[in-house]
Simulated assay, not measured.
Amino acid sequence: MPDALKNDDELSNVLCPHDGTLWMYFTSRPRQEKKLYQALLSQAIPCYLPQVKKTTEYAHRVYSRMVPMFSGYVFASTCPQGFDIVKLNSSLLKVHFLSEAAAAELLHDLKTVRKYEILAKEHKVAVYPPMTPGTAIQVTKGYFKGEYAVVQKMINHETVSIYLSSLQMTLSVELPVDFVERNCQIVNARSRKNKNRS
């Protein structure tokens, strides 16, 4: 059996309802997702840490590594008395218990995520946070790298139209979505004013 299918079969036995427990999610301390995942596994708790391959280039060399698909999140099927929290404390930030309906919805979503994870082994798959009109962002690649901007609209899943906020006049630019990232800094009032006029 091909490795990808074998791994999928193994996770199919994990991504399912488990008697006496509900699916929920754990938030980890920064960059502690894998440690938290291993701590849950060591307690024989059904858990899932979706991962994707990240490729970076440094000094003309290309490096690849597996990173969490959703930073800070590990998913598990357990109950309030189903784990030893002391063994999780070094990597755990918070446990999020869900209702039965929400747990069922989460499990459904995780099965979809798993399909993307398998797809990512053969194709490039990226996960980006939603960017609605008015979202403050910073351009991280290309000619406008370092500029602060505001999302005007999403063109499609791969392109975003933005307002650049550092120019004397408002400029609307279309960029690949992976050229920008959310920015918590407040953009200047002039940019917001121009956005509201559109």
Rank of each mutant, 00 (worst) to 15 (best):
P2R: 14
A4W: 04
L11D: 04
C16R: 15
P17L: 09
P17R: 10
P17D: 14
H18W: 15
H18Y: 10
D19V: 02
G20N: 03
G20R: 06
L22S: 13
M24R: 13
Y25G: 01
Y25F: 08
P30W: 05
R31E: 14
R31Y: 10
Q32L: 10
E33G: 07
K35C: 12
L36H: 08
L41K: 06
Q43M: 04
I45Y: 03
I45W: 08
I45S: 01
I45F: 01
P46A: 09
P46L: 07
C47L: 02
L49S: 06
L49Y: 03
V52Y: 08
K54Q: 12
T56P: 00
Y58A: 14
A59V: 03
A59Y: 11
H60S: 13
R61W: 02
V67M: 10
V67I: 14
P68K: 12
F70W: 01
Y73H: 10
F75W: 03
A76V: 03
S77C: 13
T78W: 05
T78Y: 10
T78K: 04
Q81E: 10
D84G: 00
V86G: 02
V86E: 12
L93Y: 03
L93Q: 09
K94R: 13
V95P: 01
H96L: 07
H96T: 15
L98W: 05
S99K: 01
A102V: 02
A103Y: 01
E105I: 11
L107N: 08
R114S: 02
K115H: 07
K115G: 04
Y116V: 00
E117G: 02
L119W: 00
A120L: 02
E122Y: 09
H123P: 00
K124C: 07
V125Y: 02
A126M: 14
Y128S: 08
P130C: 06
T132K: 03
P133H: 00
P133A: 12
T135E: 02
A136C: 11
T140N: 11
K141R: 10
G142L: 09
F144N: 13
K145Q: 12
V151D: 00
K153G: 03
M154T: 09
S161E: 15
S161W: 05
I162C: 07
Y163Q: 15
S166I: 08
Q168I: 02
M169K: 13
L171D: 07
V173G: 08
L175V: 12
V177L: 13
D178W: 10
D178T: 03
V180P: 15
V180D: 11
R182Q: 14
C184G: 11
N188C: 14
N188G: 09
A189E: 14
R192K: 14
N194W: 10
K195W: 11
N196L: 13
R197P: 00
